Amino acid sequence: MGKTKKKQEIEIQPFVTVYYDAWMNDNDEDPVLSLVLAILQEIDGLTSLENERGILDLAGNVLDCFTGRTVKGVLDSLRGTPPLENIKKAKDLESKIAAFFESILPERGNRMVVFIDELDRCKPDYAIHLLERIKHYFGNERITFIFSLNMDELQHTIRKFYGNDFDACRYLERFFDFRIELPKPDMRRFYDGIGLENGSWVYESVCKQVVEMFNMGLREIAKFYRVAKTVAYKPTHKEHDQWLFAFSDGTGRQFCFLCIVPLMIGLNMCDRPRYNKFIQGRDGSPLIELLKIISGLTEYADYEI
């Protein structure tokens, strides 16, 4: 018999991970300030910053470039929202940032991974500023930035700043080494997760058609159905009301609940100008469009639209 191969042991290297919500910070004058503070807050959850004088001194040097605050001010900032006054630039900012990160990594991990979320929702100038800052000042090979975003939306944001003719796609290629597209979500499971039933209720079916009509994202869908369920769930989920597309005299109220209410919620969320015209009676095209779509829901109705 041959010799049994010895299993190769895999050494797991510790990582320092930081989550940064760009949209929540896009009122900052400079993204470096909130990025450094986010990293300090993460480290404070692992060890006590009170005993890390070297790190705090280096962090203080970076933050002083923006706020003029001392190390004590850095500690204070961890307990509240830091003021963003008297922002100033410093020629040696890059070296100070490099020294700050070199002081963090040796004892805490082999690599730092910073997750940047919601960049595509930021104001155009802040999104560009954040990308440029990371490109120029965070060049440490042991730091990896992972962006979770909608690339199409981010390109749209960039064009808002530079103009519609600007090549936003080529511009963004400067900042991202690898791009991984996530598979499309399983909408049936997603609907189940937010409580949007997949049974035979007409209201749920109309809500789904409104979602498709306005091409809503997942966050928008969850918000839309939360409002739609609050407004009209009870009057549209009675066992004896499942036939209500075949409404007769006096049941127009049910048509309003089944069709007009979800349509108005969708319009209000996704197209305010058309919503205003619709509720003022100046544009009925959204309802006509929806009725054409749901005319195929014959499995739920005897009434042919």
Results as ranks from 00 to 15, higher is better:
residue 64 D to N: 14
residue 301 A to Q: 12
residue 7 K to C: 08
residue 246 A to M: 00
residue 130 L to G: 00
residue 193 G to Y: 07
residue 102 E to A: 10
residue 257 F to C: 07
residue 113 V to I: 12
residue 159 R to D: 05
residue 55 I to T: 12
residue 276 N to T: 11
residue 209 Q to E: 15
residue 41 Q to E: 10
residue 260 I to Q: 07
residue 189 R to E: 09
residue 126 Y to N: 01
residue 245 F to L: 15
residue 260 I to R: 08
residue 151 M to P: 02
residue 257 F to W: 14
residue 142 R to G: 02
residue 276 N to M: 13
residue 76 D to F: 02
residue 242 Q to I: 07
residue 12 I to R: 09
residue 117 D to F: 01
residue 44 D to P: 00
residue 235 P to M: 06
residue 285 S to N: 07
residue 198 N to H: 07
residue 228 A to T: 03
residue 173 E to H: 13
residue 22 A to M: 05
residue 295 S to I: 11
residue 59 A to W: 06
residue 275 Y to L: 10
residue 246 A to Y: 03
residue 168 A to N: 04
residue 109 G to C: 08
residue 298 T to N: 11
residue 190 F to I: 00
residue 125 D to K: 10
residue 46 L to T: 14
residue 183 P to T: 06
residue 191 Y to W: 10
residue 238 K to C: 04
residue 54 G to K: 09
residue 255 F to L: 14
residue 246 A to N: 12
residue 145 F to Q: 01
residue 52 E to S: 07
residue 119 L to Y: 08
residue 162 Y to I: 02
residue 292 K to S: 13
residue 201 W to S: 06
residue 220 E to H: 06
residue 34 S to N: 14
residue 69 R to S: 13
residue 80 G to H: 13
residue 241 D to H: 09
residue 195 G to N: 07
residue 281 G to V: 01
residue 110 N to C: 11
residue 14 P to H: 05
residue 207 C to V: 02
residue 157 T to S: 07
residue 101 F to Q: 06
residue 254 Q to L: 11
residue 292 K to I: 09
residue 154 L to M: 02
residue 47 T to M: 15
residue 133 R to L: 03
residue 304 E to A: 02
residue 200 S to P: 10
residue 212 E to I: 04
residue 141 E to C: 00
residue 63 L to W: 08
residue 302 D to C: 00
residue 88 K to W: 01
residue 122 C to A: 04
residue 122 C to G: 02
residue 1 M to C: 05
residue 246 A to W: 06
residue 105 L to W: 06
residue 186 D to L: 12
residue 302 D to N: 09
residue 215 N to R: 12
residue 197 E to Y: 08
residue 75 L to Q: 13
residue 269 M to D: 02
residue 62 V to W: 06
residue 156 H to K: 07
residue 78 L to F: 04
residue 242 Q to C: 00
residue 185 P to Y: 08
residue 163 G to F: 03
residue 290 L to A: 04
residue 277 K to L: 14
residue 75 L to E: 14
residue 150 N to E: 04
residue 299 E to C: 08
residue 269 M to N: 01
residue 258 L to K: 02
residue 293 I to L: 15
residue 16 V to P: 03
residue 64 D to M: 04
residue 131 L to I: 00
residue 211 V to R: 03
residue 204 E to W: 12
residue 263 L to K: 02
residue 175 F to S: 06
residue 152 D to L: 00
residue 274 R to L: 12
residue 56 L to V: 10
residue 26 D to Q: 11
residue 48 S to W: 01
residue 171 Y to P: 07
residue 199 G to R: 13
residue 161 F to K: 09
residue 140 N to P: 05
residue 303 Y to L: 14
residue 250 G to H: 05
residue 98 A to G: 11
residue 179 R to C: 12
residue 4 T to G: 05
residue 33 L to S: 14
residue 277 K to I: 01
residue 95 S to N: 11
residue 245 F to V: 11
residue 106 P to S: 07
residue 255 F to K: 11
residue 103 S to A: 15
residue 96 K to G: 01
residue 13 Q to L: 14
residue 6 K to N: 12
residue 34 S to M: 10
residue 8 Q to F: 07
